[in-house]
Amino acid sequence: MAAAPPVTAAAAPRPRSAAPPAAVPLWQRVRDSGWAFLLPFLLVYGAFLLWPLLYGLWLSLTDTSLVGGGGDLVGLANYAEALTDPMVWHTLGNTVYFTLISTVPLVLLALVMALLVHSGLPGQWLWRLSFFAPFLLPVATVALVWQWLFQGDFGFVNQMLAGLGSEGVGWLSDPAVAMWSIAITTVWWTVGFNFLLYLAALQSVPDHLYEAAAIDGAGAWSRLWSITLPQLRGTTGIVVVLQLLASMKVFDQIYIMTNGGPDDATTPVLLHVYDVGFTGYRIGYGAAISFLFLAIVVAVSLAQLWFTARRRAQR
């Protein structure tokens, strides 16, 4: 049988040229790429965070007044004035002082409370509810209740001291005691959040570590120092960072309970910003103080992150 003649290139059928694809509209490409899902968040983020941040930065470079005057560009004059303002340093010192006396008990008490509940106390649901319930209360309610408890003449705390034969204390009127009263109120109100973080971390510690330690004859204190606390280092770092940031931003309870008194002994830097901007009407100067305080908060956060990363690298 004769072989079929070979097909030459000239006789081979030519493929049809593909029609050029239609141009895809821009809105369809955005929709297919997933940006449409991010667009609502980006709009809200830009409108309520980026724009106020940039606008506040611009205000800090001007002499804008709340009553409508000023608005001229003054450069870094507001920052130079803030750095030489004794009240700024005084309120910053009050903020650091409150941060120190509130952060330490808020971390230690939360850890102790979590250890007690995790140890198997009867009625654990009641303990958890009791420890966490104050955190759910509004700040106004907490501040007004403790303000009544700390009243000098008829307050519950001084009435108890009088029943014990002790003299009353000016909890909110004595400059040496007022900040401690605010710290006690804050600890009672917010320790429940840190308690939950520690309790969740304790429940994630592997049981076989305790079983192996018990077989080796380790006691309760040995297991606490050798197993529990090392396993909680990461949680402790998170709790410390969150608590430092929260304490440095204190405003509400101080504004309600003492309004910065007595003699500005409890005035934090944010309350001073409020007084400068909304009582003294110097919006530009108040914005400059705010950005200086923001720089301090960011520096503290970065230092804590660096310290945590260094400790992890040394393990």
Rank of each mutant, 00 (worst) to 15 (best):
A214R: 15
L202V: 08
I184F: 15
D153L: 00
L161W: 09
Q231E: 10
T186K: 10
L209N: 00
F193W: 14
A212T: 12
I227Q: 01
G163V: 07
F193N: 08
T235I: 15
D216Y: 08
L172C: 05
I182D: 00
L197Y: 08
Q203E: 13
I227N: 01
A178F: 13
Y210V: 15
G168V: 14
M179S: 07
M160C: 02
L196A: 06
E211A: 11
M179A: 08
W188P: 06
L164H: 02
A213D: 04
G152V: 11
A200H: 06
L172S: 08
W189F: 14
V157P: 03
A201P: 13
V157G: 05
S222Y: 05
G168E: 07
S226R: 12
A220H: 11
L232V: 12
A183M: 11
W221H: 05
L197T: 07
G163S: 01
A218I: 09
V187M: 12
S166Y: 12
V205T: 11
P175G: 05
T228P: 00
T185Y: 14
G217K: 12
S226E: 07
L232D: 08
R233F: 05
P230T: 00
D207I: 12
I215K: 10
D207W: 13
I184W: 13
P206M: 15
L199A: 10
L202A: 07
A212N: 06
L224V: 00
A214K: 14
N194D: 05
R233W: 02
V157I: 15
L229E: 01
Q159T: 14
L199T: 08
T186E: 07
T185Q: 03
S166A: 15
W188H: 05
D153C: 00
S181G: 09
I215F: 07
G165S: 05
L229D: 03
M179F: 13
I182M: 13
A162V: 01
G192V: 09
W189I: 10
A178E: 09
S204E: 13
